[in-house]
Design a binder for these strands. Sequence first.
DNA 1: CCCTTGACTATCT
DNA 2: GAGATAGCCAAGG
Length: 115
Amino acid sequence: MSSFQSKFDPEVWRVVSQIKAGRLMSYGEVARAAGFPRHARMVSKAMSRADMPLPWFRVVRSNYSLGFEKGTEAYKQQSKRLSDDGVVIKKGKAIPLEVNSDTDLDELLWRNSFI
DNA sequence: CCCTTGACTATCT
DNA sequence: GAGATAGCCAAGG
């Protein structure tokens, strides 16, 4: 295991394991929270290397679409796990529980675009 | 060393 | 809003 992975992976696993049901984080947010800004693309790799079960399905893209291509098995898996959390997927976007209406989602996306 | 590949992201058309 | 484009950065060939 590379030196980078030995430092990066555990931090990613820690952050992801703390995402509560119904909440979502983007790859970039996880990377930042783990202390590795600009490492969004590494987050998925770190998760796939996890030696413990992780709520990986709560990590989505910055625009709230799922991490996998629509139609793939992985996409279906992620949708199912999210719906078990009560997260609805509308127009390809995963809506976290804190958001209840379309206007709230627009508001959330708008707010995110300015932070 | 150079090139390609990603479960990515921001910023244009 | 869907594409294209350009950054991003570790890994692997």
